[in-house]
Design a protein around this nucleic acid. Structure first.
Length: 927
RNA sequence: GCGGAUGUGGCGAAAUUGGUAGACGCACUAGACUUAGGAUCUAGCGCCGCGAGGCAUGGGGGUUCGAGUCCCUCCAUCCGCACCA
């Protein structure tokens, strides 16, 4: 019998699509657009495994579906090509990261092309390509030349700020800026030197240079952003991270905190992901209050979300790192506190986090005055107070907050209840119920009244106000590494200046080694003549030596795809106004607080500045679940070269060894392959069960070291790309995490082969019938069309694959090889299994690709039944279904049900008394 | 500790959104055709029971004629944040 020859078919159509540029997506205002985007991969040396294409297959199905639905579809692919692994490899081998990266990209592209994606490769982007990163640098420059105005709630050009300073100074300006900005009037501003003015502007720029506490990773020799640090270790490499003060480039993402929260309401993203972003931004409503330090002019500002509990304050606590510590400590305590602060500071982040239970602190000897009662409140230094959140100082209310309670117990400080129903015998009670007690002017009030009154009081006295606090910090925007975008900034008179726009891109220079210099400068410090000569200047100046972080290029790349070859703008007006934003974005949830947040930030900025028309980049987002590896194990009997089969291993003392999953089928080990795997295994012996060696298994992350990596190329070689695509979808819901298991793939392959054979005779000739299709076949076909359409619209791809199989089985049973039926089937199958669909389409006599055809409409006439089966329940038990014509009146149905012998029999002679026909055409019978 | 999600056969999973739970596939069992089969076809396949029948969607309770689906409660697993005042 002539076989379904997927190898030839797939090669043929992949070539056809490429030669005909079938997926070219250009602006076409006569058609609606659809922009389907995948999170572009980092091209690692290991190549793709079967987990990578999962999301790409899903977006490809949607893309192909939308295309035959009449949409103009943009479905691009590219590479996030700057990154640490290539650089680490360069440090070890001396190989230029550009070479490694280019090689990996070639490999990735080949693997991707084998799967038959409908990518428009003409729009490919690579973030490490100067024609791409010149625009990353350009956007950096726009951010540098902007400030965030809270009065208009948007970013504005820095020239407008300068104009305001010249006219009226900064007293009326509400902007996101550094905390140490002095107040000045217009005259003062105009009298400042250029350098003084620039230093002030730097405190307003959205990209700015400032002394900040950073996450420093000594091992990697670079700073990391908060989202790149997990539990005190670097995300890449797992090296320890410490806190350090450094001059750093940062971005004022904090300015956008509120808008980043608001925007979440308008986009269709998974709720857990939105929640993660909300937590990361960490908005909390509260108030700031000043506590005057006794006998001084110093105020300690605290932030609290529970201003109602202010009468419960029995001490103040300040962070060890706080500047206040030096100012307020009394002389006789100085040494004790210095020692304490020293100890705390030297503990790493990691130690401090893992040691939450341990309570430490020291009394400063100073007192503050309670703003409501004027009573003395002792001031403590405590390491449970974080310098970086709020004001770095807290008002402690031991009765209402567990940490304050523990601290007060430990140091024997008073605990004052402030609600009448509080129970503070064992622990703090954060209740908001009840009436206030021990609370002076707040006595007798409920929670909300107390808050309102307390805020009114502090505002009237001018010692505080209500305040919204955010957890999110400004993003550090520099890495002391080689393989990243150079920052388009040079230093003149130690003031940062932007490179002239016409001189972009600032090309990443060659260096002899990819390591820091002897002076501790970043690797770019090794480059010769890494200087910049401004136009008209005879002198040249040193360029910035840091490079941009990994997320720079990915924070705007979706715009570049729209107009990838434009060398005048980052995206042309026409393309941007047509494609606007991404309609469907598929990728992993691990980017929740990194890429996905930064992208929204940059998009909003570009929107503010009028460069783009949409302020949210990704309208709909789906998180595809990770495909995990399924490792197999063999069990070596300790101290021997015997291996015992899984179910017999408990009789021996064994150690488990990972075995390459490619030598295992349905958990049965291929013993010959195993023996040839490694020289030391050639003469091992086996204890078998039923003549077979059964392996154990476990679900783990897919990785080389666990020998559980399944390469899509191998699957394609054996079953073809169409089967791979169908099977990856068939595995389960897209969003779910699931282990890869090749076991079930035969079923999907058999479906394609069976379907193929239905339209081919034993000699392999294509045979279709032109007879009228049977009603039954039409019914099945149209049900399937409807189902598949609904499934794709709701991204439920696994159930579609089942529907294909059911339909094919049914057609095979009916021996239906009808032309009209095949035509419909091919079209609905085409998003999933495009190669075989194209082949059959051609055999049906079409000269054109089916990409230009239309998705078939289902015809309800074939689906509708002429009668409906009514489930009939008696006393709560489903007894039968009874069929009645669709147009039969309700009353007649009730009468017939009542008269039904079936019912009477099952109710043991009792006559049903009541029949209720409820909506959804369901009959209820109550006896 | 806080927040979020998920729990259905031996396994991956369906269930028209409140209406005969387990579609479809894998694995398994039996049979057919075969020199052979890791091919193909047919049938079976939640659990208990010879059977009639009974019990089953993590456990317990509730609403309903009827609950995998809605409500309460407990348990388990996974993910995120974690001294955030």
């Amino acid at each position: 019998m002539a076989e379904y020859n997927f190898r030839d078919i797939e090669k043929k159509w992949q070539t056809y699509w490429q030669d005909n540029a079938s997926f070219k997506a250009d602006v076409d205002k006569t058609r609606p657009k659809f922009y389907a985007l995948d999170m572009f991969p980092y091209p690692s040396g290991a190549g793709l495994h079967v987990g990578h294409p999962l999301g790409y297959i899903a977006s490809d199905i949607v893309s192909r579906y939308k295309r035959i639905k009449g949409y103009n579809v943009l479905h691009p692919m590219g590479f996030d090509a700057f990154g640490l692994p290539a650089e680490q490899y360069a440090i070890q081998t001396g190989q230029h990261p550009a070479i490694t990266t280019a090689e990996n990209i070639v490999k990735y592209k080949e693997q991707l092309k084998n799967i038959g994606f409908s990518f428009d490769w003409a729009k490919e982007v690579q973030t490490c390509d100067p024609s791409f990163y010149r625009w990353t640098q350009w956007i950096f420059m726009q951010l540098f030349d902007s400030w965030y105005d809270y009065n208009t709630d948007k970013a504005r050009h820095i020239d407008e700020l300068i104009a305001l300073f010249e006219k009226e100074g900064n007293s009326n300006i509400k902007a996101e800026c550094d905390e140490d900005v002095p107040n000045f009037g217009a005259a003062e501003w105009n009298a400042f030197s250029f350098k003084e003015q620039q230093n002030i502007l730097l405190k307003y720029r959205i990209t700015y240079l400032a002394e900040t506490t950073v996450n420093w990773c000594p091992e990697l020799g670079t700073v990391l952003s908060n989202d790149e640090v997990k539990d005190g270790f670097s995300e890449r490499g797992g090296f320890p991270v410490i806190r350090k003060n450094m001059m750093q480039w940062s971005m004022r993402i904090t300015a956008y905190a509120e808008r980043l929260l608001d925007g979440l309401e308008r986009i269709d993203w998974p709720e857990p992901l939105k929640e993660m972003q909300r937590n990361w931004i960490g908005r909390s409503n509260g108030a700031e209050v000043d506590f005057r330090v006794e006998n001084t002019e110093i105020d300690i500002k605290v932030f609290t979300t529970r201003i109602d509990t202010i009468y419960g304050v029995t001490y103040l606590a300040i962070a060890p790192e706080s500047d206040l510590v030096d100012i307020i400590i009394s002389n006789d305590k100085k040494q004790e506190i210095k020692d304490y602060v020293e100890v705390v500071k030297n503990r790493s982040e990691r130690e401090r986090m893992s040691d939450v239970k341990h309570i430490t602190g020291v009394f400063t000897g100073a007192y503050a005055l309670h703003p409501f009662t004027n009573e003395q409140v002792p001031i403590w230094v405590a390491d449970y107070v974080l310098a970086g959140y709020g004001t770095g100082a807290v008002m402690a209310v031991p009765s209402g907050d567990q940490r304050d309670y523990d601290f007060a117990k430990h140091f024997d400080l008073p605990i004052v209840p402030i609600y009448d129903n509080m129970d503070i015998s064992e622990h703090a009670d954060p209740t908001k119920e009840g009436k206030m007690i021990n609370s002076g002017i707040l006595d007798g009030l409920g929670y909300q009244q107390a808050v309102d009154k307390a805020v009114a009081f502090i505002e009237e006295k001018g010692i505080g106000s209500s305040k919204i606090n955010y957890r999110i910090r400004d993003a550090i925007f520099a890495r002391q590494r080689y393989w990243g975008e150079p920052v388009p900034v040079y230093f003149k008179d130690s003031i940062p200046h932007l490179v002239d726009e016409k001189d972009l891109p600032v090309i990443l220079p060659e260096v002899d080694k990819y390591l820091p210099t002897e002076d501790g400068d970043p690797p770019l410090g090794r480059a010769e003549n890494f200087n910049y000569t401004p136009e008209g200047s005879s002198e040249s100046y040193p360029l910035e030596l840091s490079t941009m972080p990994g997320w720079a290029g990915s924070s705007w790349y979706w715009f570049r795809y729209m107009d990838a070859l434009n060398d005048k703008e980052f995206v042309g007006k026409e393309a941007e106004e047509y494609w606007r934003s991404v309609d469907l974005y598929i990728g992993g949830s691990e980017h929740a607080t990194g890429h996905l947040l930064y992208s929204r930030f940059w998009c909003k900025f570009l929107y503010d500045m009028g460069f783009v028309k949409e302020d949210e980049p990704f309208k709909k987002l789906i998180n595809q679940g990770m495909i995990q590896g399924r490792s197999n194990f063999v069990y070596r009997i300790s101290g021997s070269n015997k291996f015992v089969s899984y179910n017999l291993k408990d009789d021996y003392e064994t150690s488990a060894l990972h075995v390459d999953v490619n030598m295992v089928t349905n958990d049965i080990l291929d013993i010959e392959k195993f023996k040839q795997w490694r020289p030391d295994l050639s003469d091992v012996e086996f204890i078998l069960e039923d003549g077979q060696y059964i392996c154990g298994s476990e679900v783990e992350k897919m990785s080389k070291s666990k020998y559980n990596v399944v390469n899509p190329d191998d699957i394609i070689e054996k079953y073809g790309a169409d089967t791979l695509r169908l099977y990856e979808m068939f595995l389960g819901p897209l969003e779910q995490f699931k282990p890869w298991n090749t076991n079930g793939i035969d079923g999907v392959f058999k479906f394609l082969r069976k379907f193929w054979n239905l339209f081919h005779d034993d000699q392999g000739n294509f045979v279709v019938s032109d007879d009228e299709p049977a009603q039954e076949a039409l019914k099945t076909m149209h049900q399937t069309i409807k189902k598949v359409e609904e499934d794709i619209e709701k991204f439920s791809f696994n159930t579609s694959v089942s529907s294909f199989m059911i339909c094919a089985n049914e057609l095979a049973r009916l021996k239906c090889n009808n032309r009209a039926i095949l035509t419909d089937f091919v079209l609905i199958l085409s998003p999933y299994a495009p190669h075989v669909a194209e082949e059959l389409w051609q055999k049906l006599g079409h000269s054109d690709s089916l990409l230009n055809a239309n998705f078939p409409a289902f015809n309800e006439a074939y689906i509708r039944e002429d009668s409906y089966e009514y489930p009939v329940s008696v006393n709560g038990k489903m007894r039968t279904k009874m069929s009645f014509p669709l147009d039969m009146p309700k009353e007649d149905i009730e009468r017939e049900v009542l008269a039904s012998e079936v019912i009477i029999k099952w109710t043991e002679g009792k006559q049903p008394k009541k029949v209720i026909v409820v909506p959804k055409r369901i009959v209820n019978v109550v006896v």
